[in-house]
Write a protein that binds this DNA or RNA. Structure first.
Lengths: 180, 180
DNA sequence: GTCTATATCAAGATAGAC
DNA sequence: GTCTATCTTGATATAGAC
């Protein structure tokens, strides 16, 4: 079987749900829509996922893993002289490319009791931690800044006169002093 | 009329809605619940507020103004030697004291076309800007960090071993170098 | 102006037939 | 596994009484 064809019904459901979310936003992510997307009725979904929240958790786990892969791939091939700023831009670019997905990820508590979610969380934190050479508090503070920036940008919360690039530059330069 | 008794029906509605949100969370914030809270039926609300979104915007405007007042009051009476860290803790404390309210404020785009909201946004940014002595990008970068920290803490996104206080100390100390 | 009564539509979820 | 039928709850809109 080819990788683009989901091997299980559950996987097919999760992928359809994510597609709806990314292309049409959170209001399109209804059980009815997801079911219609794969040609069945809504109640049938409950044979494969516990409820809507579990479906969202599956999307979140997939997304965190993808983001982690994007970051470690970026880091492995980075050639410039400011990998920290590079990672910040990589984080931002991923979020802006998947705005609805990013908002879902941080819209609620993580279901850490679901193994796939707990693993994905660990996975997602690894690339930045490797960059701070194991300084975990520093990596978490940098993550907080990046998340705040992306979150405010996605919600259009910066006043219209804001030079967002400048905020990233100044913020990341200042935060980089944590590592010296 | 005493200040604790809302002078208009609309004000009464906004206060009831906020009370429901703060005490019982976002799912309790329904038009039916709000109406029941003040002893009327849901459809009657639409004589006073355009729709639910406008009601939320009214709550957000009130909340931003309150937060602004809390910050400027704090700043006016601050005696210590690190006002920036003090402001950060004031920001955090306010958010942790009003978690559902804080999440509502940042859950969606601001309705800047509503005058009260646009004014409240300006109002909320002022205390921190006075602290950075007019360095607007610095104040916005600091705000982003603070928002990221609060947002991750409220959503329980820091791993269980996290010393959140330490993240604030290290992050704010680093960001303070922007002002020197 | 303000309210009650009512209707429409969509959502998440469950029971039980096939 | 999938279906139909159904329950419950929510936002919203209109008609019409007072």
């Amino acid at each position: 079987m080819t990788p683009t064809i989901p091997s299980t019904r559950r996987q097919q459901i999760v992928e359809a749900a994510r597609r709806l979310l990314e292309e049409q936003g959170p209001t399109a992510l209804s059980m009815r829509n997801v079911a219609a997307e794969i040609g069945i009725r809504a109640p049938s979904l409950y044979e494969h996922v516990t409820d809507k929240r579990a479906l969202e958790s599956a999307i979140i786990a997939d997304a965190l893993n993808e983001q982690a892969t994007a970051q470690s791939t970026f880091l492995a091939s980075y050639q410039g002289d400011d990998p920290l700023m590079g990672m910040a831009m990589n984080y931002r670019d991923w979020a802006l490319a998947h705005p609805h997905l990013y908002r879902l990820i941080y819209s609620r508590d993580l279901d850490r009791d679901e193994l796939a979610v707990a693993e994905a969380e660990q996975h997602a934190a690894r690339p930045l931690r490797s960059l701070t050479r194991g300084d975990v508090p520093a990596s978490r503070a940098i993550w907080s800044f990046a998340h705040g920036m992306v979150s405010l940008e996605l919600a259009d919360r910066f006043p219209p006169d804001t030079d967002v690039d400048e905020l990233w530059r100044r913020g990341m330069r200042a935060l980089g002093t944590m590592l010296a």
